[in-house]
Design a protein around this nucleic acid. Sequence first.
DNA 1: GCCGTTTTCGGCCCGACTGTTTTCAGTCG
Length: 580
Amino acid sequence: MDNAKIAECFDEMAELLELRGENMFRVRAYRTGASTIRGLDESVAAILADPHRQLADLPGIGETLAQKTKVLVETGTLPQLEELRQSIPAGVVAMLGVPGLGAKKAMRLHQELAIGSLQELRDACEQGRVRGLKGFGEKTEAMILKGLSIAQAAGLRLSWYRASLLAEKIAQHMRGCAAVKKLAWAGSLRRGKETVGDLDLLVVASDRDAAMDRFESFPEVTQRIARGEDKKVSVRVERSFQVDLRLVEPDQFGAALQYFTGSKEHNVHLRKLAQQQGLKINEYGVFRESDQARLGGATEEEIYHAVGLPWIPPELREDRHEFQWAAADKLPRLVAVENIRGDLHMHTSASDGSATIREMADAAIALGLQYIAITDHSKRVSMAHGLDESRLREQWRMIDQLRDEYEGRLVILKGIECDILEEGGMDLADDCLAEADWVLASLHYGQRQSRQQITDRIIGAIENPHVDCVSHPTGRLIDRREPYDVDIDAVMRAAAKHHKLLEINANPARLDLHDVHAAAAKRHGIPLVINTDAHRPDDLGLMMCGINQARRAGLSPDDVANCWPITKLREWIGPKTAAH
DNA sequence: GCCGTTTTCGGCCCGACTGTTTTCAGTCG
């Protein structure tokens, strides 16, 4: 059982315990434990296997959770979780997905009206039975009815990329209001999370009412969830996506930005630090407990400096390593899109892309890149019209011809995204791969093989002297396909040993490696490559999504091989080709 | 359930908004 699954079990435990009315701090302890395990950059199985280390040394993991983790790893199940699942119908858990319904209300509906499913909940509301309960009224009933359709669309998170496009549209709309003096996005969008569940907009306005009215008049708004007197408006756009507006004073802007950027875990940690120093941090500023004197809040720097820390980049704010790094003044200088010099994974119309080499090259130059690799699919990917040895060599002859034309403007590397075959081994002959400047190895078929088979295939590719990099190493498609079962620790050890690179694929649906794995790669000393996997010229602009992943992993430009000058990149991959 | 320069018990981040319970609980972020 991997870290993500273990974290899911603990989150589910927390949910079920909360429904059962257990002590909220106990519930929180399970959530904290889940979050710790989800954020680990190595598998808990590896820690368990190491006699010198203890799971209980991890923050938020005590003896109880360590023991339960051990049981989960060894048996794949947890007796207490099974019991809880028996005692509370899945339909009641599903009720938590209805906005406005929490554990207390859901459980009372279950106990007092014998409601055990979303359908029964809908029926009860339509029959007016819910409003009869103490503490429930007509409005609550209407809220539940409305919320039920949202619950069905729940889990609807936008990719960071789509969320960023929506955010820009809203920002444009808001800038059209003269009362809006300043605005910034906070929340998971600012932290560069791979998916975004809602948007948080901070605004400084000369006229709060005007700014709130403007916000509600955004054409895509479908519902107003709440509107406070002068601080907050919440709306939905499309079917269920929530956007919050917060009005703040200029001298509170930094405090609010810090507060609403989160993550929740990061903020809890920060405020605990403040508490230990006799300070209080909230969205309005930093205050001294003794006399309530306000010590700052106009900028985020003031907040962090108040507790003796340097400013922490939003992408690192997950309460993983950032406080430790900040305290030791060892925060990494995070990679930025401006640092990117090359893109080493893109397709052309020779396989399943839509543009010519020249069109891709021109688009790359327009983005300021210094080098690219053309990496079409190999023949195994017949659906994508993958290239065999002879078509590939033909493409390389074309690149040779283009090189003169692009001399001094762009280096075009002769590459290939070569499939790792189901039975192991590479899809193209070694003598052909030996002629390439850049070889990506990808696994597209046989993704349902056993963990051992998949791991062996990928390590086999890493051991092939012509392979430079494994692209999208876990195969996941966010919200659509689970990663294939692979021993990623073993892949990392092999990549480190054989001097190979691993890819962060910037495609918003892939983002593979994800942040935690990319951080592990860095720990192994493996350089990462951030590639767009572009299938058309516009896709080259997706680099930002991969940059987000890299920043969240704490990577610096030095850790990212396509930030290097091409000479350094060639030196790195050189020894391999020199051997032949 | 976790944790400890307030250390083995007694705390655990903080505030806004809504609906309904006229003083607050529940939910949310």
